[in-house]
Simulated scan of single mutants.
Amino acid sequence: MYYNWASDPEVTRYLTWQPHKSVEETAEILQQWEAGYSKNEFYQWAIELNDIEQPIGSISVVSLNEDVQSAELGYCIGKSWWHQGYTTEAVEAVIRFLMAEVGAGRVWSQHDVANPNSGEVMKKAGMDYEGTLRQSLKDNQGIVDSAIYAKISHVALDEEPEEEDQTSGASVTKVMAEDGTMKNVISDDTMEYVGILAKLELSPEEAEAAKKDMEDMLDYIDLLNELDTTGIEPMSHVFPIENVFREDVVTNGDGSADTLKNAPEQKDGGFKVPKTIGE
């Protein structure tokens, strides 16, 4: 923990605690965590990378509100493992646990607006952007604006869950844009999956441009779905055209006899030509 993330000032830049100055300080924190496991409301996990069998970060419930069944998440990960999807995977797993096992109806998190990468993790983990609270958070940068993201349990609201377009781990989620409308957001995993299906090797710039085009198309489809089509029968063409068939009757023949009249030599109803192979 100390060497992989807790002592790195870049990791703690937008967090609420200072980097650890010694291994002993980290050991003391770990002892406090171990003691906390005796309490039912204490939730603290390590993010472990199987390949090296070492913890590379941590994720925890930093606040609980049982009255509204709400749990706030906090997390961090070592710099060597940034932008590789590990944090998103951990957040998704903890959200599933809190909703299925603990009974949380709302799991939320917040980040310094100067740290948008943390917001990307929240969005990819299925959280929706709820808004920004001005001057509401104090971290190592001072008093800052805080962006709020949350995932709501449909079971807690007694609602049917919205369908999520998923194919082999790829996903499309919806987030609220600054203008208040819901926009489609395609994950990087989806773009990778589409590239595999289409046998395309896209550069990062090409993949980003393609993702933007696909998101715009999905947004337009959502717009079309809002149209009232009550009483309108489905159609396969914009014009009422029907196929007109004629009888399949030969009228002028195939003309092969007239064609063969021009052949210098004929054989078996065809042109006879000199051999070009096998001589």
Rank of each mutant, 00 (worst) to 15 (best):
K124W: 07
N243D: 14
Y2D: 09
L73M: 08
A207S: 14
T251Q: 10
W82F: 07
N40P: 07
V68Y: 09
I59S: 07
G231Q: 07
M214Y: 13
E66F: 15
V102T: 07
D67S: 09
P19N: 01
W33K: 04
A114D: 14
S70R: 13
V250F: 05
D112L: 11
L227K: 15
Q110T: 15
P274E: 10
Y220H: 13
S109E: 03
G57N: 02
D228A: 00
D128L: 05
I56A: 05
W45T: 09
A170M: 11
E205F: 10
W33R: 09
T251G: 02
D188A: 09
V61M: 05
S60D: 13
W45L: 07
Y2K: 07
H20T: 02
I232Q: 08
L157G: 01
K272R: 13
K212Y: 07
S153G: 04
A257P: 04
A147R: 06
L202S: 04
E89K: 14
N115Q: 11
G270V: 05
I56R: 02
V172Y: 07
E72D: 10
E279Q: 13
T173C: 14
S168Y: 13
I29Q: 12
Q141H: 08
V175W: 01
P19V: 10
W5K: 03
N262G: 09
S153Q: 05
D179A: 00
Y2E: 08
P264M: 06
L98D: 12
A35T: 01
N4Y: 10
P116D: 01
N243Y: 12
Y220S: 10
V144G: 02
H83N: 15
R13S: 03
P240F: 02
R13H: 09
G278V: 00
N65E: 05
K174C: 12
L218V: 02
Y193S: 03
D145W: 03
D213M: 05
T26K: 08
G195H: 08
